[in-house]
Design a binder for these strands. Structure first.
Lengths: 124, 124
DNA sequence: TCTTGACCTGGAGTCCACTCCAGGTGCCAC
DNA sequence: GTGGCACCTGGAGTGGACTCCAGGTCAAGA
């Protein structure tokens, strides 16, 4: 099976090597292989998990929640429903997040228009 | 002119009273009135600025950048173009942010389908 | 064989944006 | 005039998520 060095994984996932070590230490990342000399070797499974963690992280899921999710993952099929629930709930939070951003963008764009129209310094 | 107590402003803007004080201390919020006894009284200008700060904050603008923006605000009309530039640039970052969220949402939704379809525990 | 760069560990340090605290004062209703 | 709540200040503390460090090891090329 193909395996990857920390540097390669860092490059592929955008997590720093320190972060990879940190995630492994706290249990977010598991089943990471080692060479005889003790160096990490990451496989496709590790990479796929990291890609999912990247998504969850970038959509504001706190580490503690990701940890619970990973525990459900490791618990196997009997907790599939719970994993599903976590993701569904998170998905709707992402939806709200996007809506909020759009809302804020509206005001920012309004300000842009106002400044483009060259008015006074008051914050109207 | 109508003015508001810290508690009212906190309620209206969603910033805690401590945060209002903090923002004033670091210079994000300026020209806040006081009663004879030293209590803050906020006016419509303060409120409008806070509303804008809320948008910038919620769209991930760091405090340091907001501070630069506020300095441009206070500098008056001659720096209107720079304010405009800051907002335009930020607007496009918000756009990217939304795009990234959508992208991540796609993977999350894919996972949801996968789990709904009841498969193994590997992170595929 | 030697060098060099990537990697290892545990633990301390950093950064950001607040949030809390102690000790004191203002103000309004009763 | 007094009780009690909202508010004041400077400064210390917090939480989350890394990031850095010292001191050592591994491994591939010259």
């Amino acid at each position: 099976m193909i395996s990857y060095s920390p540097a390669e994984v860092s490059q592929k996932t955008g997590f720093s090597i320190d972060t990879l070590r940190y995630y492994e230490k706290i249990g977010l990342l598991y089943d990471v292989g080692r060479t005889a000399g003790g160096r990490r070797r990451f496989d496709e499974n590790n990479l796929n998990l990291l890609r999912l963690l990247r998504c969850l992280r970038d959509t504001e899921m706190p580490i503690a929640d990701m940890l619970r999710f990973v525990q459900l993952l490791r618990a196997g099929d009997e907790r599939r429903r719970e994993r599903l629930a976590v993701l569904r709930e998170h998905d709707s939070r992402v939806e709200e997040q996007i809506a909020r951003l759009r809302e804020h963008q509206r005001l920012i764009r309004h300000k842009i228009e106002v400044y483009t129209a060259a008015e006074s310094t008051t914050c109207s």
